[in-house]
Each structure stands twice: as C-alpha cells, then as structure tokens.
C-alpha cells in the first residue's frame, strides 16, 4: 500500500541533553490505523510533534504525501490533524468559534455546513454556543478531535486520545476512529493502553527509550510473539508431573490440580494430540481443558523487559 508518512533516521536530542528519539525510521501506509505503544517518556509524543511541525528534529527527515515537512510545510501540514494529549483549549472560546478558527488557521474557507456535520457527528451540536470551560472532560476531548478534523485532514494524529476517560467514552472514541478510517483518514495513535491498540489498530509500533523496537501487523505480531497455552484441569491433584509427560515441559499448578502446556501456535505439530494420549496412558482423569493466547500487553511487557 502507498505510504503517506515516511520517517527516515529521525533523531531528537533536547537542549538538556535528553535523547528522545534515536534513529527512528517508519513508513505509515495510507488509510491504516497505526498504534504507537510505549511506556511514558518512550518518545511517542516527540515523534508525533516532529511530524506535525511543533518540535524540530535534530537529525533525519520526514515526508508526508511525498513532500518534505520542512521544505513543503504548507502542503504537509494542511494534510495533518493533531489531537494533543492535554486538554489544551481556550476555556472562554465557544465550541463553534473554536472549530471555525481551526479551519481558517489551516487555510480553508469557512464552511458552516461541514462544521455543523462535524459537530453533529461528535454529538456536540447542542453545545455549539457553549463556552468550552462549561463542558465535561469527555466533551472537551471531542472538541479537540473536532478542531483537528475541521480542515478535513488526510492524516490524523491522536496523542493518547483516551487517557483519563471512562470506559464508555473510550469505546465511543474507538468507534469514531473506525468511522474516520472508513472515510479514508490515516490514523496514528499513541497509547499505553494495550487494549486500545489490540482493539482498533491494523499495525502496532513499539517505542522504548527513543528507539522503535518493531512495527508489525497486529495479528502477525501476536502470532509471531504470542504463545498459546493449554490448561488441563485434573480430577485428582498430583504431587508432581509424571516422568512419562516430562518431554512436554508441563507446569504443575500450586494445588496440583492443573497442568499447563505452552506451545507455538505457528508450529506444524503442536504436540497436543500426543500429549492428550500420554495423559490418558498415565492414568490421569481430565475434568476440563482450555486454551489461552498471550495478549498484546504480555508481548509488549516481554519486549520492553527483554530490552531493559
């Protein structure tokens, strides 16, 4: 798929000497949802801020739609919308006015019909003449999204869009992100909620200590790094794993009532049929069994822990 954002060997060292980004290269495909995961201070916001023109890079280059963000900043910035992490809004501004301001700032002629549609889609139409300080936190976040979309961008950056919002609003936000993607907008979101990336992203990038550790299709990443486990619940507890089952590396639970077999789901032979047969031959009565797969969170933790 065509790349809409290209980041090449990007580095950023702040004036206090902190290296926020180290030689980051990344291609973002047109129309995808990319989730950038990473712990606090990993460099996610710095990366977004450089692409959007808020922070100067120390080294490397970024292009959007084939245009350099420095040389052709007018073109590239007109394609980008940014929803910042903090609720940075003019508290005395009215909702309608602030969206019109954002649209004009990005060089678009006034279009009251579009702004009205946008406010209705964001369930803010009834609040159009309300001062921002009178809105709830969730509404303020939607105003920020409205401002970012006011100039009809092709690429939308959402910096921690659901930080500090309740579960219901988070799900509304995810639905909105999916709708935007369906309308052709490329979405890059930073988050440290693994659940968020797992729920809506097409690809996942993991940043830690200013380095992009990996960028992978979410499903492939889970398949590649995710392990599956089969838990066998026994009728009677065991004191230890029988010798005949040693080759499967089974783990016995503390109370001796469960055996856990961990395997690679991509393998041609998982070994499960042989294991079940051996369990029967060992005279163990099976009450129940289930399988579980490692979540993106576990993959993320193992990757970050592995590096540290």
């Amino acid at each position: 798929m065509k790349s809409i954002v290209s980041v090449t060997n990007l580095s950023k060292t702040y004036s206090d000497g902190h290296e926020a980004l180290k030689d980051v290269s990344l291609e973002i495909a047109d129309g995808e949802i990319l989730a950038l995961l990473g712990p606090n201070g990993a460099g996610k916001t710095t990366l977004i801020s450089i692409i959007c023109g808020i922070v100067n890079a120390s080294d490397g280059s970024v292009s959007v739609d084939g245009h350099d963000i420095i040389a052709d900043y007018r073109h590239t910035r007109s394609l980008i919308g940014l929803v910042p992490q903090e609720l940075t809004l003019g508290h005395f501004d009215k909702v309608w006015n602030t969206l019109c301001f954002s649209r004009g700032l990005f060089g678009k002629a006034p279009d009251p019909d579009y702004i009205e549609r946008l406010l209705r889609n964001l369930s803010l139409w009834s609040k159009k003449d309300t001062e921002i300080m009178a809105l709830s936190g969730g509404m303020k976040r939607r105003v920020l999204i409205g401002k970012a979309l006011a100039h009809e961008p092709k690429v939308l950056f959402l910096d921690e869009p659901t930080a500090g919002v309740d579960v219901e609003l988070r799900k509304d936000m995810w639905a909105l992100v999916r709708e935007l993607r369906e309308s052709g907008v490329t979405i890059i979101l930073t988050t440290h909620y693994i659940e968020e990336a797992e729920e809506i992203a097409d690809r996942v990038g993991i940043i830690d200590g200013g380095r992009l550790i990996l960028v992978e299709n979410k499903q492939e990443l889970m398949q590649k790094l995710g392990r599956k486990a089969m838990i066998i619940e026994l009728d009677e507890s065991l004191a230890e794993v029988p010798d005949t089952l040693a080759r499967w590396g089974l783990e016995l639970s503390g109370d001796g009532s469960q055996l856990t077999y961990t395997y690679d789901p991509r393998g041609v032979r998982t070994g499960i049929p042989d294991l079940l047969q051996a369990v029967g031959e060992a005279g163990l009565a099976v009450k129940d069994f289930k399988t579980t797969q490692s979540s993106l969170e576990e993959i993320f933790v193992s990757l970050v822990k592995g590096r540290s």
């Binding site: 023109g53 808020i54 910035r77 910042p84 809004l89 700032l105 990005f106």
Partner: peptide, 9 residues
C-alpha cells in the same frame, strides 16, 4: 493552545 498555530500551514 499555541500547538495549533505551530502545527498549521
């Protein structure tokens, strides 16, 4: 709120 002006064309 200056972020918006700085990220605009």
């Amino acid at each position: 709120t200056i972020y918006e002006v700085m990220s605009a064309p």
